[in-house]
Protein backbone atom coordinates (compact mmCIF):
# COMPACT_ATOMS: atom_id res chain seq x y z
CA UNK A 1 0.00 0.00 0.00
CA UNK A 2 1.44 3.31 -1.12
CA UNK A 3 1.79 6.49 0.93
CA UNK A 4 0.69 9.77 -0.62
CA UNK A 5 1.41 13.30 0.49
CA UNK A 6 -1.85 15.19 0.06
CA UNK A 7 -0.95 18.86 -0.57
CA UNK A 8 -3.66 19.86 1.93
CA UNK A 9 -3.48 17.13 4.60
CA UNK A 10 -0.02 15.58 4.54
CA UNK A 11 1.01 11.94 4.26
CA UNK A 12 -1.71 9.32 4.44
CA UNK A 13 -2.27 5.70 3.41
CA UNK A 14 -3.29 4.89 -0.13
CA UNK A 15 -6.56 3.47 1.17
CA UNK A 16 -7.74 7.08 1.69
CA UNK A 17 -7.13 7.98 -1.95
CA UNK A 18 -8.30 7.16 -5.43
CA UNK A 19 -6.29 7.47 -8.63
CA UNK A 20 -7.94 9.00 -11.71
CA UNK A 21 -5.33 8.44 -14.38
CA UNK A 22 -3.38 10.85 -16.51
CA UNK A 23 -3.23 14.50 -15.46
CA UNK A 24 -3.01 17.74 -17.49
CA UNK A 25 -5.70 16.92 -20.02
CA UNK A 26 -7.59 20.18 -20.36
CA UNK A 27 -11.20 20.03 -21.52
CA UNK A 28 -11.37 21.54 -25.01
CA UNK A 29 -13.23 24.82 -25.12
CA UNK A 30 -14.30 24.81 -28.75
CA UNK A 31 -15.88 21.37 -28.68
CA UNK A 32 -18.21 22.08 -31.60
CA UNK A 33 -15.33 22.78 -33.95
CA UNK A 34 -13.38 19.62 -33.12
CA UNK A 35 -13.42 16.69 -35.49
CA UNK A 36 -14.33 13.22 -34.21
CA UNK A 37 -10.71 12.12 -34.03
CA UNK A 38 -9.58 15.05 -31.88
CA UNK A 39 -12.60 14.69 -29.60
CA UNK A 40 -12.01 10.93 -29.38
CA UNK A 41 -8.41 11.55 -28.33
CA UNK A 42 -9.64 13.74 -25.49
CA UNK A 43 -12.39 11.38 -24.34
CA UNK A 44 -10.86 7.94 -24.79
CA UNK A 45 -7.08 7.95 -25.14
CA UNK A 46 -4.56 8.08 -22.31
CA UNK A 47 -0.85 7.35 -22.08
CA UNK A 48 0.31 4.26 -20.21
CA UNK A 49 4.04 4.69 -19.74
CA UNK A 50 6.50 2.49 -17.93
CA UNK A 51 8.26 5.17 -15.91
CA UNK A 52 7.34 8.77 -15.13
CA UNK A 53 3.60 9.42 -15.09
CA UNK A 54 1.77 12.62 -14.18
CA UNK A 55 -1.55 11.58 -12.69
CA UNK A 56 -4.62 12.82 -10.83
CA UNK A 57 -5.66 11.69 -7.36
CA UNK A 58 -8.42 12.50 -4.91
CA UNK A 59 -8.23 12.35 -1.15
CA UNK A 60 -11.67 10.73 -0.87
CA UNK A 61 -11.55 9.73 2.78
CA UNK A 62 -9.97 12.99 3.85
CA UNK A 63 -10.30 16.50 2.46
CA UNK A 64 -12.04 15.20 -0.71
CA UNK A 65 -9.83 17.40 -2.81
CA UNK A 66 -8.10 16.74 -6.09
CA UNK A 67 -4.37 16.99 -6.63
CA UNK A 68 -1.68 15.79 -8.99
CA UNK A 69 1.18 13.41 -8.39
CA UNK A 70 4.21 12.29 -10.36
CA UNK A 71 4.79 8.57 -10.03
CA UNK A 72 7.28 6.18 -11.54
CA UNK A 73 4.98 3.39 -12.64
CA UNK A 74 7.85 0.89 -12.75
CA UNK A 75 8.93 1.41 -9.14
CA UNK A 76 5.81 3.01 -7.64
CA UNK A 77 7.99 5.79 -6.33
CA UNK A 78 6.29 9.20 -6.02
CA UNK A 79 8.45 12.07 -7.18
CA UNK A 80 6.16 15.04 -6.52
CA UNK A 81 2.73 16.11 -5.31
CA UNK A 82 1.11 19.41 -6.31
CA UNK A 83 -2.21 21.19 -6.44
CA UNK A 84 -4.38 21.43 -9.54
CA UNK A 85 -3.53 24.52 -11.52
CA UNK A 86 0.08 24.47 -10.38
CA UNK A 87 2.76 23.99 -12.98
CA UNK A 88 3.83 20.37 -13.42
CA UNK A 89 7.21 20.03 -11.72
CA UNK A 90 10.10 18.77 -13.79
CA UNK A 91 11.44 15.48 -12.44
CA UNK A 92 14.40 13.31 -13.40
CA UNK A 93 14.51 11.70 -16.80
CA UNK A 94 12.38 8.69 -17.57
CA UNK A 95 13.84 5.54 -16.07
Amino acid sequence: MLILDCPWCGTRDQSEFHCHGEAHIARPTDTEKMDDKAWGEYVFFRTNPKGIHYERWTHDHGCKRWFNAVRNTATDEFLAFYKPGEKAPAVGSDQ
Binding site: H20, A26, R27, R56, T58, K64, R65, W66, P84
Partner: peptide
Protein backbone atom coordinates in the same frame (compact mmCIF):
# COMPACT_ATOMS: atom_id res chain seq x y z
CA UNK B 1 -19.28 17.91 -9.78
CA UNK B 2 -16.30 18.39 -7.46
CA UNK B 3 -13.97 17.00 -10.10
CA UNK B 4 -15.02 19.68 -12.59
CA UNK B 5 -15.07 22.49 -10.07
CA UNK B 6 -11.67 21.66 -8.61
CA UNK B 7 -9.77 20.68 -11.70
CA UNK B 8 -11.35 22.47 -14.67
Amino acid sequence: IEEWLQTE
